[in-house]
């Protein structure tokens, strides 16, 4: 199933509403990304206004899905951008640790929880 194509005659069609009892997050990583921003704000790393400004900038980039399906990708980009601005984590460090997680996943037998300790490669 591919998503329905956008009809140029009605570019503003809203995505279907899944109702009040729909899962809050479509995938677990979205919930984690959401919670990371909330936790870092509560810890005082950034104000919520700083967060909203960064998220707005990401959401305003051309190519965003009119239906908002890519919302948490922008959320994640905003989080990474703020972490770089605050001197907490540069993109290349995030890339390295991300790659370590991919290697750990590949080295983990199917059905087992994926742990970073399973990474056979060097991380530093």
């Amino acid at each position: 199933m591919s998503p329905p194509e956008t009809d140029p005659a009605s570019p503003f069609r809203l995505p279907p509403d899944a109702g009040p009892d729909a899962p809050v997050f479509a995938e677990p990583w979205q919930a984690q990304a959401f919670a990371l921003a909330v936790a870092l704000n509560e810890r005082g790393l950034f104000t919520w206004s700083e967060w909203a400004a960064e998220l707005s900038a990401k959401l305003a980039r051309p190519g965003a899905d009119p239906g908002g399906a890519d919302y948490y990708r922008h959320w994640l980009d905003a989080l990474e951008a703020l972490l770089a601005k605050k001197g907490v984590a540069e993109p290349d460090i995030i890339d390295q640790v991300t790659n370590a997680w991919h290697r750990a996943a590949h080295a983990t037998p199917h059905g087992q929880p994926i742990r970073l300790e399973n990474d056979p490669g060097e991380r530093s």
Binding site: E27, P28, W29, Q32, A33, L36, L40, Y72, R73, L76, L79, E80, L83, V88, A89, I93, I94, V97, T98, A100, W101, H102, A105, L116
Partner: peptide, 12 residues
């Protein structure tokens, strides 16, 4: 995206 979020969680 899942890997990237895990990486952020690890670093933080």
């Amino acid at each position: 995206f899942a890997a990237r979020v895990r990486a952020l969680e690890t670093i933080l």
